[in-house]
Computed example of a mutant assay.
Amino acid sequence: KNLLTMTLLPSFVTHAAKRIAQGSLHSSLRPLSSLTDPSMLRYWGKGNLQNAIPIQREARIVSLSDPNDDANSALNYGALPEGAHLLAIGTKFDEFDIRTLQEQEPNVLFVSHPLARKPLVQLLDALPTVEWVHTRSAGIDFVTSPGLSASKVYVTNARGQFSSTLAEYCMMACSYFAKSLPRLIQQKQDRNWGKYDVLELRGATLGVVGYGDIGRACAKLAHVYGMKVVALRRHPDLCVDDPLCDKVLPSTTEALNELMSESDYILVSAPLTDDTRGLIGPTQFAHAKDQAVFINLGRGPVVDEDALIAALKSGKLKGAALDVFTEEPLPVESELWDLDNVLISPHNMDQTATFMHEATEFFVNENLPRFVRKEELLNHVDKVAGY
């Protein structure tokens, strides 16, 4: 049914036919993501919806995505919720039959293509009936623009789909330096039974720059370890009764420097916006506690990479664990590759085998049923602030 109502692209038709021939055109049977807070869900994984609120409107969807992206199978080839219809898929504005879409009056835009910034604004201008834009990622810096900010659309994202595994990475990074894992590996290679003192995470302070969903997931595990948590966020009042935080600071330069000076482990999980670009620079590293460990799993450009390298080379910082960088892939000539006190991962510490599938399934199986029933959508994003 969904395929027959589409404005079909040749590449999409070919791919769909291939999937049908393979017998893989079906609704996703993947288990619920362990990264999603089950208490927030009304529909995903709930089975029979006969007792749900009646359908109030249709969801007529345009997908700004790669038709061959298997992670979008639940949307492109699955059985959509009652009242939802997929109209068209494309990666560029000129791939869509705009006249036909204007007649069909789409009201939902799903976005997963990394080069979506310009075509998204073009589609919003051409299709004024669109009410809701959902991005498959947690960060929306790849679609933010003056055009999106000025639009009337409601924006949501996949916040929560990536937090759990990133929190595990954060604690692994803390332990990597606390227990001197590089030394252990070297001693094994050398067949060296040399004992040495290790550091305990219990009682140490984790400073979280950007206490959103990812930051709080890290704080949750740190709390279990017995660590103290100092959080920095734009709206500290939202943490008034948060049992995970020992201190909450506002997003000011003075507060950021205070966090840097108090933290044994500094975690950056802030999104990339105009306000956060270059947020951590020479001044912040100068305020950092001696021998602190720096962890970045937010966005690379939030940190002045040259200042970070200087702090690592001088010994001000004990080390750094970096999953994101100013330029990706990290250039082979970057000094970071040469520093023994740096743990580098290729922006993949949230990349489970099914993480993108789960992000799409959240849209299809939770927020779409909410939309057609005119219920509040999960994961609202401030399209002007960028998070």
Rank of each mutant, 00 (worst) to 15 (best):
N2G: 14
M6N: 00
T7K: 03
T14S: 13
H15V: 01
R19D: 06
Q22D: 14
S28G: 09
L29N: 12
R30Y: 05
P31V: 06
P38T: 12
S39K: 11
Y43I: 02
G47M: 02
L49I: 03
A52M: 04
I53D: 09
I55A: 01
Q56A: 15
Q56L: 00
R57D: 05
A59E: 04
A59V: 00
R60E: 03
V62H: 01
V62E: 07
S63C: 12
S63K: 07
L64E: 06
S65G: 13
D66M: 09
N68I: 06
N68M: 14
N68W: 06
D69Q: 08
A71W: 11
P81C: 10
E82H: 00
G83P: 00
A84M: 06
A84T: 05
L87W: 02
G90F: 08
T91I: 07
K92M: 05
E95F: 00
F96T: 02
Q102N: 07
P106K: 02
P106N: 03
L109F: 05
L115E: 12
R117T: 06
L120A: 04
L123W: 03
A126H: 01
V130H: 08
V133D: 04
A138S: 14
I140L: 06
D141H: 14
D141P: 00
A150S: 14
A150K: 13
S151L: 02
K152R: 14
V153G: 00
T156I: 06
N157W: 04
G160T: 02
S164D: 11
S164M: 11
E168K: 01
Y169H: 10
M172K: 01
R183Y: 00
Q189G: 05
N192E: 09
W193Q: 03
K195E: 14
V198I: 15
R202K: 13
G203C: 04
V208I: 15
V208C: 09
G210A: 11
Y211E: 06
Y211Q: 08
G212V: 09
G215P: 01
A217S: 14
L221A: 04
H223E: 06
H223D: 12
Y225E: 11
G226E: 07
K228Q: 14
L232C: 13
R234K: 15
H235F: 11
H235S: 10
H235W: 13
D237E: 15
D241S: 13
P243T: 03
L244H: 06
L244W: 03
C245E: 08
K247Q: 14
P250H: 09
T252G: 07
E254H: 11
L259H: 05
S261P: 07
S263H: 08
S263G: 08
S269Y: 00
L272S: 02
T276E: 02
I280M: 11
H287F: 13
A288G: 07
K289E: 09
K289N: 07
V293C: 09
N296A: 05
L297T: 12
G300W: 11
L308D: 10
S314K: 12
K316P: 00
L317S: 07
K318Y: 13
L322S: 06
T326S: 13
E328K: 04
L330T: 05
P331R: 12
E333M: 09
N341M: 02
S345T: 15
N348Q: 15
M349F: 10
A353H: 13
M356C: 10
H357E: 15
T360G: 07
N365Y: 15
P369W: 08
R373M: 05
E375P: 01
E376M: 03
H380Q: 14
A385D: 11
A385G: 00
